[in-house]
Amino acid sequence: MRRMLATAIIILLGVLLAAAVSEMPPFAAPSNPADNQVNERYLGQVVQEVGVLNVISGIITDYRAFDTLGEAAVLFAGIAAVLAVLETHNLDTYRKDRGKNG
C-alpha cells in the first residue's frame, strides 16, 4: 500500500519534472539567464577586489562569507548534536539509572 502510494507520487513528480526539464534553458549554452552581471563581476573583478585567483574561494570567503559562517555553524551544530546525543544516551549510565529506579 505504502509502496504503491510512493510509486504513484514518484511517477507524478517524474512526469512534472521531465516536462520542466524540457522547458529549461538549454544546457551549457552561453546566454542562459544565470549568465548575467553577477558572475561577470565575480569573474572580472575578483583579483582587484579580493586579491585571489580562485574565484570560488573568493566567493565563499568574501562575497558570500556569511553563508560560510552559516556553514561553519551547521558543522558545529552537527558535531554538538552528535556528541550530546551519544553522551546523553550512554548505555552504561542508562542501565545504572534504570537499576536505581527499579
Partner: peptide, 17 residues
C-alpha cells in the same frame, strides 16, 4: 599586505580558510 594574487594577497581570506 600581500600582492593581489599571491599567498598573502587575499586580506582575511587566508586566516579564515
Amino acid at each position: 599586505s600581500g600582492q593581489a594574487g599571491t599567498l598573502l594577497g587575499g586580506g582575511f581570506i587566508l586566516p579564515v580558510t
